[in-house]
Amino acid sequence: MGRVVVEVMPKPEILDPQGKAVASALPRLGFTGFTGVRQGRRFELTVDGPITDEVLATVREAAITLLSNPVIEDVVRVTEEPDEAEGAGA
């Protein structure tokens, strides 16, 4: 089993109302000193078998086709990660 992580963020020039909501809640809870918060999304895609270049290419394609909207979002990272289940079972 292999796992690919895709991270998507709102483009820098796009307002991020969700991030702003979080930013305004932080100081109310005593978490001060943060000048900004931006909120994105993380997707974990798992496959049977190893992560090949072909799998990564397919994930990248899916990331710009469905997982993100290039008008408002950037795919900032597509990374292969060790599968949690594998590590736990060792």
Binding site: I14, L15, P17, Q18, N69, V71, I72
Partner: peptide, 9 residues
Amino acid sequence: GAMIKNDHR
């Protein structure tokens, strides 16, 4: 274009 959350949330 695209639609995102209302500015006032």
